[in-house]
Deep mutational scan, measured.
Amino acid sequence: NNDALSPAIRRLLAEWNLDASAIKGTGVGGRLTREDVEKHLAKA
């Protein structure tokens, strides 16, 4: 759900053309954090 994404995370996902549903969020309530996105990018 994009409503739970911060503007910074939305921008990062758009910049790298990533799908938020493909990344497991570790923040409060399962929210994506910058670290989650960076770890996903490191694996790719």
Rank of each mutant, 00 (worst) to 15 (best):
H40K: 03
K24S: 09
R11K: 15
R10K: 14
I23A: 01
G25M: 03
G29V: 03
N2L: 12
K43I: 14
N2T: 13
G25Y: 02
A8S: 09
R34G: 05
L13R: 00
A44Q: 14
D36G: 00
P7W: 05
L5T: 06
R34S: 06
A44L: 15
D36W: 03
R10I: 15
R34Q: 11
D19C: 05
G27Q: 02
R31F: 05
I23W: 03
R10Q: 15
N2G: 13
A44S: 12
S21L: 08
E38Y: 14
N1K: 07
I9T: 04
I9M: 06
L18Q: 03
E15W: 12
G30Q: 04
G29K: 06
D19F: 05
G29S: 06
N2H: 13
A20D: 04
V37M: 03
R11A: 15
A22Q: 14
S6T: 12
N17E: 07
K43C: 08
V37W: 01
A22T: 11
P7Q: 13
G29M: 06
L13E: 01
N2F: 07
L18Y: 03
L32S: 00
L41M: 08
T33W: 01
N1H: 14
R11H: 14
S21W: 07
H40F: 15
A44N: 12
R31K: 13
G30M: 02
G27L: 03
K43R: 10
T33Y: 03
L18V: 09
L13F: 04
G27T: 03
R34H: 10
I23E: 00
L32F: 04
H40A: 12
A44W: 14
G29P: 03
A14M: 11
I9F: 03
A20E: 07
G30I: 03
L13S: 00
A8F: 09
E15N: 06
G25P: 10
K43S: 14
K39I: 11
D19K: 07
E15D: 10
D3V: 10
A4R: 12
N1Y: 09
L13W: 02
K43A: 14
L12R: 02
A42F: 07
A44E: 12
R31E: 10
D36P: 00
L41E: 01
P7G: 08
G25S: 05
K39A: 15
D36K: 00
R10W: 07
G29R: 05
A8D: 15
A20K: 05
L12K: 03
T26L: 05
A14P: 00
L18F: 03
